[in-house]
């Protein structure tokens, strides 16, 4: 963990001293992590890529103001969650619209079993039904594997709040999954 943060710091220093290579190293290191967080909210390949690009543009333009009070990944994930929040706020109903279309999983190949597709679809629909602040907490926990303390820094709330949001998100997910399973029978 410490090594990882030291590595980030060296990339940031490199970038601030005028070398773009430092920023490029950060992009290479974190692009897939950011993509997976964004995708778990958006569930659309092209839109997710656009949002990831937006996130890294914000990083590029505000890295000078990064004070290092929190770890770089925490700061990056905060930008990611806020960018996704703004996207969804501007395009209300985007997710529900996406999930009713047949092209939700354009990347799914013929090898992928029908069961897996159905499972993905169920998770997507269930997640879409969970309000943003609860979804953000559970996504950061279950997709990115952050600790409660790290999530509380990203979302700027207390650890108790994180715990309660994750608990409630899982209760909602369970209810939604049961509902969706009931519908499909």
């Amino acid at each position: 963990m410490e090594e990882r943060l030291e590595e980030d710091s060296s990339y940031i220093i490199q970038f601030l001293s005028g070398e773009e290579a430092g920023f490029e190293a950060l992009v290479r290191k974190y692009q897939d992590k950011v993509l997976n967080i964004v995708y778990s909210f958006i569930r659309h390949d092209a839109e997710s890529e656009d949002i990831v690009q937006e996130v890294f543009l914000k990083v590029y333009r505000s890295l000078e103001s990064f004070k290092g009070r929190s770890a770089f990944p925490t700061w990056l994930y905060r930008i990611t969650v806020n960018t996704v929040y703004d996207f969804l706020r501007k395009r209300r109903g985007f997710l529900r619209g996406q999930l009713t279309e047949e092209s939700v999983y354009p990347g799914s190949g013929p090898r992928e079993s029908l069961l897996e597709k159905e499972k993905e679809r169920t998770v997507s629909r269930a997640l879409a039904a969970v309000p943003f602040k609860f979804r953000a907490a559970v996504v950061l926990k279950d997709i990115e594997g952050l600790s409660y303390a790290e999530i509380s820094e990203v979302l700027r709330c207390g650890i108790g709040t994180v715990e309660s949001r994750i608990f409630r998100a899982r209760q909602m997910l369970k209810r939604e999954i049961l509902k969706i399973s009931g519908e499909s029978k």
Partner: peptide, 28 residues
Amino acid sequence: LVKIKETISCGEKKTLPADYLLCRLRDR
């Protein structure tokens, strides 16, 4: 709870082609 946790975390992991994003960023 464990099942829900696994279902969410075991979803399809996305990856971007190497330097694909960097090219887009440089252009932007």
